[in-house]
Amino acid sequence: ETGKELVLALYDYQEKSPREVTMKKGDILTLLNSTNKDWWKVEVNDRQGFVPAAYVKKL
């Protein structure tokens, strides 16, 4: 879809709370919100949640 910003997972991340999502290094995720410098909201496999901003980079 146009207008979607994507990020690349630089590291594996295992969710530690229900508000977070698990990702694997190399995953491409849809970026939903990056206003917080530490935690970015992403969508992966129809799930939305937060990942550490340092673990992903914008494509």
Rank of each mutant, 00 (worst) to 15 (best):
39 W>N: 02
6 L>I: 08
12 D>I: 02
20 E>T: 07
41 K>W: 15
28 I>R: 05
38 D>S: 10
16 K>G: 08
33 N>Y: 07
4 K>T: 11
2 T>P: 12
20 E>N: 05
7 V>W: 07
34 S>C: 10
38 D>A: 11
44 V>Q: 15
42 V>T: 01
45 N>E: 11
8 L>N: 02
16 K>A: 11
57 K>I: 15
37 K>D: 11
38 D>W: 14
45 N>Q: 12
4 K>W: 10
49 G>I: 04
17 S>A: 08
31 L>S: 01
19 R>G: 15
50 F>A: 02
4 K>L: 14
55 Y>V: 05
24 K>V: 09
57 K>E: 13
50 F>I: 07
2 T>R: 06
46 D>C: 12
27 D>I: 04
18 P>Q: 09
41 K>E: 14
9 A>P: 01
52 P>Y: 03
44 V>C: 10
10 L>C: 07
46 D>N: 13
55 Y>C: 11
50 F>P: 00
23 M>K: 00
31 L>A: 02
9 A>W: 02
53 A>L: 02
18 P>L: 09
58 K>I: 13
6 L>G: 03
8 L>I: 15
15 E>A: 15
38 D>C: 13
33 N>M: 08
57 K>N: 07
5 E>C: 13
29 L>M: 14
38 D>K: 14
47 R>S: 06
33 N>F: 06
47 R>E: 05
33 N>A: 10
24 K>E: 06
14 Q>L: 14
30 T>K: 13
58 K>C: 09
15 E>V: 06
27 D>S: 07
10 L>E: 04
46 D>W: 08
44 V>P: 00
57 K>S: 11
5 E>A: 11
37 K>S: 13
5 E>W: 13
10 L>T: 05
12 D>Y: 04
7 V>N: 00
35 T>D: 15
48 Q>L: 07
16 K>L: 09
3 G>L: 13
49 G>E: 02
42 V>A: 02
28 I>H: 05
34 S>L: 05
53 A>R: 12
12 D>M: 03
36 N>G: 10
30 T>H: 09
27 D>Q: 14
59 L>G: 04
9 A>G: 03
52 P>W: 03
18 P>E: 12
1 E>T: 15
15 E>I: 06
22 T>P: 06
29 L>R: 00
41 K>L: 15
8 L>W: 07
54 A>Q: 10
11 Y>F: 13
26 G>Q: 02
24 K>A: 09
45 N>P: 10
41 K>C: 12
18 P>V: 11
9 A>Y: 01
31 L>Q: 01
25 K>I: 06
53 A>M: 05
35 T>K: 11
2 T>H: 14
18 P>T: 10
23 M>N: 00
19 R>T: 12
27 D>K: 03
40 W>F: 07
32 L>D: 01
46 D>A: 11
